[in-house]
């Protein structure tokens, strides 16, 4: 479903070239829950940006659903993000001026769905995260954990190919983090693929599979092995 072949990403400034990702080969299958870990500056965010079509790359190929993403126009990449990927960010990134209902509505509107279908999807998504009763509240009226649940509702409302989560519990206390993690596991158990970047080994271990990035290079470890690695670390 998601396949990277030989993907490299180099950031060039006047003074330095940073090889943020080096020849990454990766395959993630439908329904998986994958965690991505690695030290700070190792390339996790870069990987997430490429996987989420937020940034472009010059080397290698990236197939999403069988289609190569490389070299597509900005508009096409917007469409892919809109239709195939659900984003969950560390700082939630809800739009502060919009009530919850309209926050979840944002990606659906760009998709050009009918008002009726959007309404059904929004209500269903907010029910899934347990916030259907607060649709007309503004984000600032919610706790951090609730805000992240709204972000999750926004990510799943469009039935994307996969969810891309960037430190989804990084800004939450442990109880709320626990709830959000359980919600993600619940969503995954119903068939949605999830890729989660985190530096929290506890959380990483709960995924089916852990991908580690060191200095821009990926080592892909199956769950059984991953557990060993993390335990011995």
């Amino acid at each position: 479903m998601l396949r990277m072949e030989n993907v490299s990403k180099i950031y060039r400034t006047d003074l330095v070239e940073t090889h943020a990702l080096r020849k990454v080969d990766l395959h993630i299958k439908s329904g998986e829950f994958v965690s991505v870990t690695g030290p700070s500056g190792s390339g996790k965010t870069t990987f997430l940006n490429l996987a989420g079509a937020l940034e472009t790359f010059e080397e290698g190929d990236y197939f999403l659903d069988g289609h190569n993403v490389k070299g597509l126009s900005d508009d096409k990449l917007s469409e892919i993000r809109n239709q195939k990927i659900g984003f969950i960010f560390q700082s939630f990134n809800l739009l502060p001026d919009l009530p919850l209902f309209d926050n979840v509505d944002v990606p659906l509107r760009y998709r050009g769905m009918s008002a009726k279908e959007r309404k059904e999807r929004i209500e269903h998504a907010l029910e899934t995260v347990g916030l259907a009763s607060r649709m007309q509240h503004l984000p600032t009226q919610l706790s951090g954990g609730q805000q992240q649940r709204v972000a999750i509702a926004r990510a799943i409302a469009g039935d994307p190919l996969f969810l891309l989560a960037d430190e989804p519990t990084g800004n939450l206390d442990s109880l709320m983090a626990q709830q959000v993690m359980e919600l993600l596991e619940d969503i995954n158990s119903k068939g949605t693929t999830i890729i989660m970047v985190t530096h929290d080994d506890q959380l990483a271990r709960r995924a089916h599979r852990n991908i580690q990035i060191f200095d821009g290079q990926v080592s892909d470890i199956e769950k059984s092995v991953a557990d060993d690695v993390i335990r011995s670390a």
Binding site: D74, R81, N82, N93, V106, Y110, R154
Partner: peptide, 16 residues
């Protein structure tokens, strides 16, 4: 800036 970036991430085209 952050909100606009968020909209872009969620699928807004430049023209949107």
């Amino acid at each position: 800036r952050k909100q606009i970036g968020t909209r872009r991430a969620l699928g807004a085209k430049k023209s949107d």
